[in-house]
């Protein structure tokens, strides 16, 4: 399985009206790995994930998930196929309880028994959520909401989990916790495509990474290599 491709993005072009947001990017995510997508604000990172999950339509190019073309597939089918996303800004459902948020994450599944087991597993990873199952999502703290967003995405049992800035706005200790969890999830067999502002942390855990700049991939390589790269250090790690 090591060499299987989970996701392949080929020559992807996306427009918002007249704005050319993605200008023919190519990205590959091998099965079982953590791949990071870094880049400045407005580079097109979120657009890439949103296009993969079917929320935004590509003008040109191809997206393959586990060898199947999903470029024109509807968002809910893509989830059913095993591709989940933690959207930018958490986006938990404030009017639903924590429990309901999690159940909604498992919406595409029919295996009641296993859903129960997965909930137990989720509560082992995120004990704080367990204490708050009856609470409305909107009453959670920012960090708890972020955990709920990750947990909710996991409830679909994805083969590929895409995360859009899961550490945004979290205190340093929580950021560390989230990154540890990401690593654990990956070691449990879930492939991960990760967007991060926090480039350093992302490159440290990523097996492979892409650097995006105004809609194009300008650099790619193994996470550790990019960490050493002069250009990356200057532009994204804020070093002189």
């Amino acid at each position: 399985m090591e060499n299987d491709l989970m996701l392949r993005i080929e020559d992807l072009h996306v427009f918002y009206g007249g704005i050319h947001a993605l200008k023919g990017i190519n990205i590959e995510v091998p099965a079982g790995k953590i791949v990071a997508l870094v880049g400045a604000n407005g580079a097109g990172k979120s657009t890439t994930l949103r296009t993969v999950s079917g929320l935004v339509r590509a003008r040109q190019g191809k997206i393959e998930f586990q060898g199947i073309d999903i470029t024109r597939e509807s968002a809910h089918h893509i989830v059913e196929m095993g591709l989940a996303m933690v959207p930018e800004g958490r986006r938990i459902f404030p009017n639903l309880t924590v429990w309901e948020n999690l159940l909604l994450g498992s919406y595409t599944r029919r295996d009641k028994e296993e859903i129960k087991e997965d909930l137990d597993w989720i509560f082992r990873i995120f004990p704080r959520l367990k204490e708050r199952v009856r609470q409305k999502g909107g009453t959670l703290s920012g960090g708890e909401q972020q955990m709920l967003a990750v947990a909710r995405a996991l409830m679909s049992r994805p083969h590929l989990l895409m995360m859009d800035e899961p550490s945004l706005g979290l205190a340093p200790l929580l950021v560390k916790e989230i990154f540890n969890i990401i690593r654990d999830i990956n070691q449990n067999g879930t492939t991960i495509l990760l967007i991060e502002q926090n480039a350093k942390a992302a490159l440290q855990i990523a097996h492979y990474a892409y650097v995006l700049e105004t809609g194009s991939v300008v650099l790619e390589g193994r996470g550790k290599e990019l960490l050493e790269n002069e250009k990356v250090r200057k532009a994204y790690l804020g070093e002189e």
């Binding site: 996303m85 009017n95 639903l96 309901e100 909604l104 995405a153």
Partner: peptide, 18 residues
């Protein structure tokens, strides 16, 4: 539950596979 979710956030509800 899906109805209540859609009424808050249509896009994220789609991301749940709804």
């Amino acid at each position: 539950m899906a109805m209540r979710a859609v009424s808050k956030d249509m896009e994220t509800t789609r991301l749940m596979g709804v």
